[in-house]
Design a protein around this nucleic acid. Structure first.
Lengths: 241, 241
DNA sequence: GGCGGCAATTTGGAGCTCCAACTTTGGGGG
DNA sequence: CCCCCAAAGTTGGAGCTCCAAATTGCCGCC
């Protein structure tokens, strides 16, 4: 790191090093703004900026009136698991295997396809669809939001035992799901999402756009939003069934 | 939005709205700090902070001496595509289908397994492995970094036509890859990564940890790093081959 | 010994200012 | 007519300050 680097980055680098090498363990307090100015001989602005950057990276959290603390190590919960013949393990199986209690709520309503959804489902704009909102919780804390869209003709309630029993439900309707396509990317959470997921500032989300296909016809599409810092998507592909 | 919200968030929300609804198209200039203070009647600090937040969200870019501009719409390049019987399409096929020229470089070297890699490959610490670094480019711009680790006994050069011909190469050695497990998460880029990927400040990366298994034995593991804002991972799962 | 409230500390919002480095633009000179 | 340079504008780093809201610890009172 060149000495001509901004001073606030010097402070960031030094604290980050202490966090990753473990000399500042999870929960440990970070020196306050006043202490940092003295310790590193920088101004308030640089000290404050350094703390903001570290918070944005998800390494520390600030608590008003108390201080900044090293965040807990991410709890890596596999949320998605694919096997060839049993499609989806139901949500919850993985979370339960990690010792957490999985619960979810859902709410279904008729809606009109937005241009984006219409394109994904190959419908006309404003075509009737069924929209279902899900909130998934692990030990009561929300860990995943999802919104699912189905053409009105296929609509039906989520299965009791698992909201992800879509393939089975469609199969009962004579619709055979042949392919599932997912697009995964990361973005900044919308205010409503930070709210329901209780995201600290600066945390990004993983966004999964999933579409179920029956042949060349899309039969369901959903948007799945997951806090990007504490969860991992797990994909397991069996090559030889 | 409550009126008690921080003023800088009012500015952020207003500009963000204009960007997402299209009244500020990609490339359009954002008012300068001085203009924002006048337009919204806020202080320099708030105006500056608003611009910083929008830049961190990836909606705008700042160019020193020139101004802030609305960023181009993300170019969504599927980088990963799975089909049941042909495993991986070679890197490049997807990128080429979008009109870009795919190139890559790689560099192989013997190394000792770090504790993390040793655990992933079920080897002893410091066991000999072959480490291969890849840089993938689309139209000359780096779009993906990867580091692959193999136990030294399996090591061999990446195939000429595609560095991803791992399954075929191992098969020739009598090792049959039966499963591929991937963990996907998002994090802040390390300085070296921002550098090689030419990432603007505030952009996160997608990190894929991929392990190839032959039965219950891991035969290769790799870390794949992709700019999170302009690329999407695409997974296609065929349910009925 | 226990409890309530006050004072010190801390974060986070907001304001102002100065300056170095870089772009852009326009005007003047060759 | 074209080129180059200087002036004006802009970002980003850095400094200082004030204040509201929240937490924490301590002191004194019951």
């Amino acid at each position: 790191m060149a000495t001509s680097d901004p001073v606030y980055l010097r402070v960031v680098a030094d604290i980050r090093r202490q966090i990753v090498d473990g000399s500042l363990p999870p929960g440990a307090p970070i020196p306050s703004r006043a202490q940092l100015t003295r310790k590193y001989g920088v101004g308030e602005t640089a000290a404050r900026h350094a703390l903001r950057v570290l918070a944005a990276e998800g390494l520390i959290v600030g608590r008003v009136g108390s201080g900044h603390y090293v965040r807990d190590r991410p709890v890596l919960l596999p949320l998605h698991r694919w096997r060839f013949h049993d499609h989806h393990a139901p949500f919850g199986a993985d979370i339960q295997s990690q010792g957490a209690r999985a619960t979810w709520e859902w709410r279904s309503e008729p809606a009109e396809a937005s241009p984006d959804i219409a394109q994904r489902l190959r419908l006309d704009d404003s075509a009737p669809v069924t929209r279902t909102h899900y909130v998934f919780r692990g030990d009561g804390r929300p860990v995943q939001l999802a919104t699912s869209y189905e053409p009105a003709e296929f609509s039906g309630p989520p299965a009791e035992e698992s909201p992800r029993g879509l393939v089975a439900r469609l199969s009962a309707l004579g619709v055979k799901v042949t392919e599932i396509v997912e697009q995964v990317y990361t973005r900044v959470p919308q205010p409503a999402e930070s709210d329901t997921l209780a995201l600290p500032a600066g945390v990004h989300v993983l966004h999964v756009e999933r579409t179920h296909w029956a042949g060349d016809r899309p039969v369901e599409t959903s948007d799945i939003v997951i806090p990007g810092d504490r969860f991992r998507l797990v994909y397991a592909h069996s090559l030889h069934p």
